[in-house]
Nucleic acid binder design. Structure first.
Lengths: 307, 307
DNA sequence: CACACTTACGATATTCGTAAGGATT
DNA sequence: AATCCTTACGAATATCGTAAGTGTG
């Protein structure tokens, strides 16, 4: 017995009309095809559901029993398929994104609002997380994908570079280096700077970029905002990627490009290899592919204007 | 989109095993047929449900959504079909029978117990009713069928005679006619008898059977038991069909066959013409066809022994 | 005899199994 | 190399529509 949505619909239509011809039209079938459909349904179930002659179509006792069943099952099935359709057409769903705080705050807001406008039914959850946490979240399926700075494309995970940013030296206007147009790693030797904790992605990138040399550390902080505060208060200088610059008030500070051995920080899309992302997540990803690099450009050009 | 029970079963099997080959076996299909089944399901729905390679089969995000649906819908559907099967196999159901009180009490008890033994899951409701009420109950579908004495086979209803009974004169042992072996309608002229109300089936039959003559009435009663009481108390005599005789204590009374112009009272099965009876009702009907006449014979022979 | 359901039958579409292909470990 | 999913393809099955048949009012 292989009960079919079509059989239930046909049955319901015949109950409603009590007329094969009209029920057949309602199902977009010829009367004959409809007749055999009902007849097959009856022989599948093993009992006549309709007592019919050429003038009257009525339910049998077993037809009444089946009607109760169909009255329950048919709406359930159609509701379920409609729910499924909502997901397929991206009217429903959930996207969980893990992103580095700087990426989140500097690049995502306008992309998020575009996404929410295009897919108002989709629940969007963005977790700001450290690079390592991003990787873990994706690996454990706690996030659909991540936007982070670097990741090993291993057995499970795959990365794709969507954009890059570069590094800037940030200092007070009266700093000795304040009026330089461009700086090298060597220029910064001897100037104490605020660095981020070892685990932070900025710090790891910088450590790799200037290896084997080292800069002079003044403070070591955990959060970007702490570093911003220190520099703003004139207690230090720092080196941060482009995406961190909006956190600083550049009317009173200088941001000068720094040339490093690894000059670009990649902004990576990190995904699972099994391509099990939801359609909703895929929609967000294609929006990112389309707009993330442009967002970086926009940011850079705004900074050039400000500087 | 024509969702199928088979599709849901296949999906559930694949979720459970996460292996096409084993799921295919579970569905009694070749692995290849199973693969195209899943593939067709996916293209019907419009999205991949499984992220699969040769080593791993996993649900996609949309597959999870569909799993929630199937987890709900599949048990519902199977429960419904099992319910239907119970009715088809007569493990469930309801039979409503209308029957004349004499038929009910004299013939049905042993048939009822046989039916309840054979079909323990079926609810059996027997309404004792007058002949006219029997007809109405069947016509209005309040009863599946009726056992009554006579009925016009009209446009809606059809009758079938299952058995007959005959009429007896019942009197005290010291009545003048008490030792006769056989009586004619004429023999009863001048002997006052207890009659039943005009509407009763016994009365109507007797009126028709002796027309245009009439018997002398002593009392007119509504219920058989009243008549029984009167005769037993020696306050009258009466004429009743075979099926009513068990109500009398024949150790102290005489029951003598009466030859009438319409000598036999039919015991009819009254049904609707549209043959919309439930399978349960059909089962009861075939039991009646098989055993009702035998029950009358049994009753008659017991009476002959007693008399 | 007109209307409505059923049956017959050839055409089309779907589903099946066998067998070969491709990918991953 | 072994395992597992996919694809190709011919065969079996199911479903469709046209058209003729049947029965009822």
């Amino acid at each position: 017995m292989n009960l079919t949505l079509r059989q239930m619909k046909a049955f319901a239509a015949l109950v409603a009309t009590r007329n094969f011809t009209r029920a057949a039209e309602h199902c977009s079938l010829t009367q004959s095809a409809f007749s055999t459909l009902i007849s097959n349904l009856e022989s599948d179930i093993g009992v006549r559901l309709f007592a019919r002659n050429t003038r009257n179509v009525e339910l049998t006792a077993e037809g009444e029993v089946f009607l109760n069943i169909v009255n329950h099952l048919l709406p359930e099935t159609e509701r379920a398929l409609s729910e499924m359709r909502d997901h397929v057409q991206r009217r429903k769903g959930r996207v969980v994104v893990a992103a580095l705080p700087t990426i989140f705050s500097a690049l995502l807001p306008s992309i998020i609002s575009a996404f929410l406008r295009d897919y108002p039914g989709i629940e969007l959850i963005i977790e700001d997380a450290s690079n390592g946490t991003c990787v873990d979240l994706v690996r454990n399926r706690r996030a659909d994908f991540a936007l982070c700075a670097y990741a090993a494309s291993g057995a499970e995970l795959t990365t794709e570079t969507l954009a890059w940013d570069t590094f800037y030296f940030v200092c007070q206007k009266d700093h000795p280096l304040a009026n330089r147009k461009r700086l090298s790693a060597d220029d910064l030797q001897g100037h104490p700077i605020v660095v981020f904790e070892k685990a932070s992605s900025i710090r790891q990138h910088l450590d790799a970029a200037i290896y084997p040399k080292q800069w002079l550390h003044s403070f070591q902080v955990h959060n970007l905002s702490t570093g911003v505060g220190l520099v703003t208060a004139g207690l230090g200088t720092t080196v941060v990627p482009t995406l961190a610059l909006p956190q600083f008030d550049l009317r009173n500070l200088r941001a000068i490009p720094v040339a490093l051995s690894i000059n670009r920080r990649e902004i990576c899309l990190l995904r699972r290899k099994d391509s099990s992302e939801s359609l909703a997540a895929q929609a967000f990803i294609s929006l990112l592919r389309e707009r993330l690099a442009k967002e970086v450009e926009l940011l850079t050009s705004r900074l050039a204007t400000a500087g």
